[in-house]
Write a protein that binds this DNA or RNA. Structure first.
Lengths: 198, 198
DNA sequence: GTCTATAGATCGATAGAC
DNA sequence: GTCTATCGATCTATAGAC
């Protein structure tokens, strides 16, 4: 995958991935042909196979990069134990919204196109996704342990909250009435009151 | 669409729809061929075209029926103004979970295969979906008006809550550790505390 | 590294016999 | 109402020239 920096090939590979992300997130994996992806990237289908051995390899590369970069970005932003359990949870919620809103194409791929992968690829992607979910499970458990939340089943709550937060990509528009800060405030209120309980 | 009751054709039409629901929800619309759907329904592709004029017509029929039956089911179960705003909201949450969990295939179609429709069909399905969302918007606004909730933006809260509730179909299993009542209790707590606020 | 050309399979949809 | 047979288009992937 790694290629000489600055080479023509690196530019082409990026063009292919960008074209694939755009086309597959719009039309779906099966409906996006290798020819169309290549054309959108400015090459022919023959040249594309110099970069990816198969169509599913392109999809896997997009998903794998998206999830690895997501995990790395959170590690970068995690305030850790320097703040209260509730503040750390709040930081995660705001991060998740801010990170995903500008990446709705990657989100669509992650949720709707996993079945385009073969079994090995699917397992690898699910492991990365589970790793990210485990972060939130830990935060919720910590908040409950600190007496700042009362959640029976942190795993269930995590799935519920991630579904809720990620769903924002289905309706948010940059030219809409709400900016990201306003969205963050509303979701923060829903989640924090939701997990605090009673 | 309507056919003589008890005729052979009615049985075949149902078999086609059942096969299409199963296959498309598993493999996706583009990846499910007319031939495979027909074979799974016990007929050939030639016979299938006696029931549906095109492949997208099958998808539209599935989505249209699902949403119409969903709306009718809520109308049947809505306690109306006989109960408090909070109790009515609770009834909706429990209904949504109980109705969707056994219908995960239809949910998958509704969320992931809308792009298989043509423009007219897409508009019609979105109208039905919006109708259902409007129900929850009304319930949240009523709860806020009654002083039982404090939600700034009922439309945003509705989208958040429906994403959260419907996400249950992505992980719930009948043979898992939680029964539907336990799931309802957890989601009820998250949503009711979430909208109640402070 | 990119091209043209194409193999081999499968697709949606239709025609016409029974 | 269901079948067989098929048209024309399109698909993934490969071969080989430059």
């Amino acid at each position: 995958m790694a290629r000489t920096a600055g080479s023509k090939g690196e530019v082409t590979e990026t063009a292919i991935l960008d074209a694939a992300r755009r086309l597959i997130s719009t039309a779906g994996f099966e409906a996006s042909s290798i020819r169309t992806i290549a054309q959108e990237a400015g090459v022919t289908s023959g040249a594309l196979y110099r970069y990816f051995p198969s169509k599913t390899a392109i999809l896997f590369c997009l998903l794998d990069r998206h999830l690895r970069e997501l995990l790395a970005a959170w590690r970068q932003e995690d305030p850790g134990l320097a703040v209260s359990a509730t503040d750390r949870l709040s930081a995660f919620i705001c991060f998740h919204l801010r990170y995903h809103i500008p990446r709705r194409e990657d989100v669509f791929l992650s949720y709707r196109e996993l079945r385009g992968l073969d079994a090995t690829q699917y397992t690898a992607i699910c492991q990365l996704r589970d790793q990210y979910e485990a972060v939130l499970v830990g935060l919720i458990d910590a908040a409950t342990a600190a007496g700042e939340a009362s959640v029976d089943d942190a795993k269930l709550a995590t799935r519920a909250i991630i579904s809720m937060l990620t769903g924002v990509t289905q309706w948010y528009r940059d030219d809409g009435p709400l900016d990201i800060e306003a969205v963050q405030a509303q979701y923060l209120a829903l989640v924090l009151h939701g997990v605090r309980g009673s």
